[in-house]
């Protein structure tokens, strides 16, 4: 079975313009498809969880993670990119 490969991208930090735009641009450039986004701002703290399909041959998890890590450093927010299996393993039987 060829299961869909997914990445979970979580962003946490001070709210500023363009976080979602820049994260989604990197996803687009890496041929990843956004499956789900949830985003909130609580007293100035920006929090977003994004699930993306990274099954495309043109999409490398490592390259995507490296770019998003660098974006996080530039924006001064924490961006974490993880393979989705850890969440599925923990919460699904």
């Amino acid at each position: 079975m060829n299961e869909m490969k997914k990445a979970v991208i979580s962003v946490l930090g001070t709210d500023k313009k363009g976080i979602i735009a820049q994260v989604s641009r990197i996803l687009y450039e890496n041929d990843a498809n956004i499956l789900d986004i949830s985003q909130t701002i609580v007293s100035g703290l920006f929090s977003m969880i994004l699930i993306a399909d990274i099954s495309s041959e043109a999409c490398s998890f490592d390259a995507l993670k490296t770019e998003l890590d660098a974006l996080g450093d530039r924006l001064g927010v924490q961006i974490r990119t993880q393979r989705s299996e850890i969440f599925e393993a923990m919460h699904q039987i």
Binding site: V8, S10, I49, E88
Partner: peptide, 14 residues
């Protein structure tokens, strides 16, 4: 298949 939800993700991250 069940899509992992936000609260489960946050629980793991925490």
């Amino acid at each position: 298949m069940h899509m992992i939800n936000t609260s489960e993700i946050l629980e793991t991250l925490s």
